[in-house]
């Protein structure tokens, strides 16, 4: 807990972002647009679940300032994950 936990939220966001953006670019390049929607939604659900677990653990551990930082970063990451995933519901995959 502590510094590592705060950074974990960033890592989850970064992986989600890379997976969503890179996965979509790859899927379109190889002509498999149908996998984009499940990929993005799946990755987002997993990322949100991990961020939730992170926030709960950080809160329970009473990590003081760093615990609060971890929760805050998880919250910002979750917001970004939700927003970044939303377009897949509205726009064509490629």
């Amino acid at each position: 807990m502590g510094v590592a936990a705060s950074l974990l939220g960033i890592v989850i966001w970064a992986l989600h972002f890379g997976l969503v953006y890179g996965g979509q670019a790859l899927a379109c390049e190889v002509g498999r647009p149908s996998i984009v929607m499940p990929l993005v939604i799946g990755a987002s659900v997993v990322a949100l679940a991990l961020l939730l677990v992170l926030a709960v653990v950080a809160r329970r551990s009473r990590g003081g300032f760093l615990g609060g930082l971890a929760v805050g970063i998880a919250a910002f990451s979750a917001l970004a994950v939700v927003w970044e995933a939303a377009p897949v519901l509205a726009l064509p995959a490629c």
Partner: peptide, 16 residues
């Protein structure tokens, strides 16, 4: 968050 969510949804509709 409220304003930007509304704007995001509007933009997506427009993009379509």
């Amino acid at each position: 968050v409220v304003v930007l969510t509304a704007l995001l949804l509007h933009t997506l509709g427009l993009a379509r």
